[in-house]
Simulated assay, not measured.
Amino acid sequence: MATTAPALLPAQQATLNAIRTPAERRPAYAHTFAAELRDEAETALAELMDAARDMDSRGLWVSKRSLAGVFGCEARYLADEDSPFEWTVPTARGTVLHKAVELSIHRRFEPEDAVDAALERLIADDDSLGSFLAAASEGELADLTANCVALLTRFSETFPPMQRAWRPAAEVRARARLGAGSIVLSGKYDLTLGSPAPLGGSDGLQRAGKVIIDLKTGSRSATDPEDLRFYALVETLSVGVPPLGIGSFYVAEGRIEHEAVTAEVLASALRRTVDGIGRLIRLRSTEHEPRRHPGPPCRWCPISAGCGPGQEWLSDPDD
Rank of each mutant, 00 (worst) to 15 (best):
T91Y: 12
S104H: 10
R108F: 14
P22A: 11
E110V: 11
P84D: 14
D316E: 12
C298N: 04
W61L: 11
P196N: 13
M55S: 10
D275I: 02
E120Y: 13
R164I: 11
E312C: 03
L119G: 06
A269V: 00
D214A: 06
D56G: 08
A146I: 05
R107F: 13
R107H: 15
L178T: 08
V234T: 04
I19S: 01
V211R: 02
V70Q: 01
I183F: 04
D190E: 06
T32K: 07
T21V: 15
T262V: 04
R229Q: 08
F71T: 09
A208K: 01
L119R: 03
D227R: 05
A165Q: 13
S315V: 09
D227P: 01
G306D: 15
Y250E: 07
V70Y: 00
I213C: 05
P243M: 05
L270A: 01
L233H: 02
A118F: 08
L16G: 06
T192K: 03
S83D: 15
L141P: 03
T217Y: 00
A170H: 03
G278T: 04
A2T: 11
E259L: 09
S83C: 12
Q163G: 11
S137I: 06
S315T: 11
G276R: 00
A124M: 11
L233T: 00
L280N: 01
M1L: 12
C73P: 02
L215P: 00
P294V: 00
E24M: 10
L60K: 01
R121S: 13
L9N: 03
T262Q: 09
T88L: 07
W166N: 05
S268Q: 14
A41E: 07
L16Y: 04
R76F: 07
R299S: 08
M162I: 14
S186E: 13
A100V: 11
A260D: 09
D56N: 15
L9G: 04
G247M: 00
Y250H: 10
R167V: 14
P317C: 06
I19G: 02
F249E: 00
E312S: 10
T4Q: 14
H31V: 15
V261Y: 01
V241F: 00
I246R: 00
Q311K: 08
A14S: 10
T4G: 04
E40D: 14
S186R: 09
E110I: 09
R282P: 04
I212C: 11
S128L: 11
A114H: 03
R272A: 05
S248P: 01
R121F: 13
S156V: 07
T145N: 08
A5G: 06
A44S: 15
L244R: 00
G308I: 09
D116V: 12
P168S: 06
L48I: 05
T236L: 01
P242V: 01
F71Y: 05
E312T: 08
S248M: 03
E40H: 13
Q163Y: 05
T153V: 09
S104C: 12
A100S: 14
